[in-house]
Amino acid sequence: MEAFEYLAPSSLAEAFTALGNGKRSMMLAGGTDVIVQLRENRRHCDQLIDLKHIPELMSVDIRSDGGLDIGAAVPLADLYNNREIARRWPGLVDSASIIGGTAIQSRASFGGNLCNASPAADSSPSLMVHDARLVVASASGTREVPVEAFFAGPGRSVLQPGEILLRISIPPQPARSAVFYHRFIPRNEMDIAVASAGVRLALDESGERIASARVALGAVGPTPMMVAAAAEAVTGQAPTSETFAKAGEAAAAAAQPITDMRGSMAQRKHLASVLTVRAFERALQRIREAR
């Protein structure tokens, strides 16, 4: 582990000043990825900027319009321990409660998980199907990026030097909708997804037809991916296992996985289908339970 300086700015302005000093910077939120990567000399920096003292990055705002803003450095445990969030956004808790173990969730954040940009990150598919927007700040202002446009490749995002991920903004969700996210891992905890799927299912007023759907997959390509074909396959259809199977087929077709130590190409394509189908079933169950 190379030596670096540690800065703990208490405001965004201070952080941008530090970012502009010409040194190689990295951001510290929960540190559960970054500290390990630095220790193992997989990444290098001259200064580590701790974002946890900047109020904007540590706040959670349940908006009056029905949306939710999550500061990028808010620990995952803060989300699932928040009863209202747990009740209204169970699809977020699906991912927040399985990233690492308990001790990781005390520190790790959605923002950190996104910026680490692992194709297998558990936060990504869930946020993608929520249609979440990422608010990115720099010294010159802010911009919004849809989550699905945030990833540039394994370990790479579209964040530019001088930019900080400020918050995750989740818009109001459609009526009669629910999100479900899950992954497949060989153990029951403490594992990286072999493949994962998030689904948002919205029913029409009759409850008999699917009004809209969003489907996202993780760990089956260089970045997490939206699968429009899977959503199209179910839209307007009855929410039946036959319908969901079609989405599963579309998901498997869209998946472009590799074989590595965590799983094989064939296994991952197969799992993309299985997980998508099961996610639809569980999302449907959530809608029905909410009624």
């Binding site: 153990r187 029951n188 905890e189 403490m190 594992d191 990286i192 130590m261 965590r262």
Partner: peptide, 16 residues
């Protein structure tokens, strides 16, 4: 060896 960590060398956890 590609899995030389307790993350990817999967020993059983209490949940397994």
């Amino acid at each position: 060896m590609l899995n030389s960590s307790f993350l990817d060398y999967r020993m059983p956890t209490s949940l397994d």
